[in-house]
Design a protein around this nucleic acid. Structure first.
Lengths: 346, 346
DNA sequence: CTTACCTAGTAAAAGGTTTTATCTAAGCAT
DNA sequence: ATGCTTAGATAAAACCTTTTACTAGGTAAG
């Protein structure tokens, strides 16, 4: 079981009676400098020996690691969340497929942030770029990046008082579209189940939603809003509480599909029918939204596309083709069966 | 915006009037060789300059990358699956927390397998070890690993005819426990909703389940089994089909919690009550199982623990403390509200 | 006084690549 | 015969560490 030494470019050079330089030039397809004959000889030898250039040596030389990292917050089952899952899939596929980049997975727990591991990642040449997911306004440590020295960008969010690169969906538009849809159907008593308030896009969603309602002279009083904690259970509880507080509510927007689905089940367990008694709108348009009962009307946020673009933009930052960027993607309504005009009350 | 060169060990040596070797010795805590005075001088200088050793150079020297990869199959939303999510979380946390290892995310799509990228990962010194998730009997390419030249192991599964390292739950026991639980409750007409047949652990679950039934002189005929495709929708459809084929069924085991939850909703929509009319047992004990209606009786498979152990074992393989291994973890029943004795039919 | 050993430290090699600057031989013009 | 150009190839430097083998100077033992 003699662990044979890995074959290096030196071995190829020796066995093909050429110099290091020649082998390197041939293998990196620098055209025109080497004769056809030598080229073939080198390639054949490299093949025969099974030569594979070491990423470590290449990286040391080029000062590039060929790696990017995805930083996710430490949430139980962050990796089991469709939202993150969709983004991670998009990023991984784009990085691997289009750029031959590999993806590192990092979790930002308390110690990680205190010891500034996210900077270490760059300083120790682990990565060439960083994508931050699930960022909130409380993540002030991101200020360490606002000099723009390290290629990084915030995915599907932004921070109010730190200027960072980002690619995201238009959540104000999302709120507006959802609001207009419900108003157009004739609803007047409309409620909102929001997720965490420290997430900027959530604030935007609310802003857009409220603006749409206001335009139709509808208020969004405190008793018409509730926290759904971004979870199904939270959505269920929030919906029930809202209906208890004001039984005349006829429509609810939830900040994501999970809470919307929870809300539907919460309403059902109160004996209310969706959409006959109460209409429900979600946000995200995740896979499951199509298959729940009733199929969910929701705002389609192009997450896969955002993940993909985030990766592309990060590569541009890495390659210095770009300095700073902020890209906003439009959203659309996907109308299914969970919304309908309100019952004409007598 | 002059991009200043990264500070190297050479800079530290120069500024602290010591040699490269001395600096390296001090910084790597090789005790005893260097005087207290020099040591302090070096440390102070390193701090002042903000020196961070380059992982690339260290890796080149040590022939270790400090990275391990998780290989997942290309399934839509593989990263949004609680099953994979739990394993990935466990692995990532263990690798980062206990070993200062970082985790690379790889997706095994067709091209990836055909071009043997999984081997390239080792040959090009990207990684020191590999963990394979979601493996099936069709993944014959894994034969490339059976020489044991590269540290790798299969997580929560195994292959019948390829001898590989693995850490997994005892799915035969899982089937047996579920079967015994239902038999003990008095059920005689029992059905199984399985996932993909090409997954070895699924076959094991069935085997253990059937053995438990047989011991009680109960058969598991073809019409009492159905494919649930590992999804909620699949579970719903499968349950409905089973009940249509044989309305006398009083209990169902589903191969995972997702299908179990689907089965419950499928049964409900047929007007059947769970557990009053039909008992349902799941497998996995994912977070959601506790919160569905009724709370799901299920086999608890210690996924987090398995992921953690997988990581630990991989590190032992990497460090040569171990050559080959196969570790099976016991499972337990978590009894909640979705199972009950069968109705005494008049 | 010689030998052996210890302490504090260093020079140089090794790890594997890419790139820059240089070299050689051949062909051609002067 | 000399100088210039070019194609084809190469030596050496650079990227940054860690480790091995060595040195100089001092002390203790024989």
């Amino acid at each position: 079981m003699a662990k044979r030494r890995t074959v290096s470019i030196r071995d190829v050079a020796r066995e093909s009676h050429a110099s290091l330089t020649t082998v390197s030039l041939v293998l990196n397809r620098r055209e025109g400098r080497i004769s056809e004959e030598t080229r073939n000889r080198v390639i054949k030898t490299a093949d025969r020996l099974g030569y594979r250039p070491s990423r470590l040596a290449q990286g040391l030389q080029s000062q590039k690691s060929g790696l990017l990292a995805i930083l996710v917050p430490q949430i139980r089952h962050a990796f089991a969340d469709v939202y993150f899952g969709e983004l991670i899939s998009a990023i991984q596929e784009t990085a691997a497929g289009r750029y031959q980049y590999k993806v590192l997975l990092e979790v930002a727990n308390q110690d990680y942030i205190e010891t500034k591991q996210y900077l270490e990642l760059f300083h120790r040449h682990y990565i060439d770029g960083l994508l931050c997911l699930g960022v909130t306004n409380r993540d002030t440590y991101l200020r360490d990046f606002d000099h723009g020295r390290h290629p990084m960008l915030v995915v599907n969010n932004y921070l109010e008082d730190i200027k960072l690169n980002n690619v995201l969906c238009d959540y104000q538009q999302a709120g507006r579209l959802a609001g207009e849809h419900l108003v157009d159907l004739g609803h007047r008593k409309i409620a909102l189940i929001y997720g965490a308030t420290e997430v900027q896009t959530t604030a935007d969603l609310r802003k857009g939603f409220e603006a749409a309602l206001n335009r139709a002279k509808i208020k969004l009083p405190k008793k018409h809003t509730n926290d759904g904690l971004y979870t199904e259970e939270g959505g269920a509880v929030a919906a029930a509480a809202l209906m208890k507080l004001d039984p005349s509510i006829t429509a609810i927007l939830a900040g994501n599909d999970k809470m919307a689905i929870g809300a539907i089940s919460g309403l059902k367990s109160l004996g209310l029918r969706v959409p006959d008694d109460v209409s429900v709108v979600g946000c995200d348009d995740m896979h499951q939204a199509e298959f729940c009962d009733p199929p969910l009307t929701t705002v389609h946020t192009p997450l896969y596309e955002v993940g993909q673009r985030a990766c592309e933009c990060l590569m541009e930052l890495i390659n210095g083709q770009r300095d700073t960027l902020s890209e906003v993607h439009p959203v659309t309504m996907t109308i299914r069966k969970s919304t309908a005009p309100p019952k004409t009350t007598g």
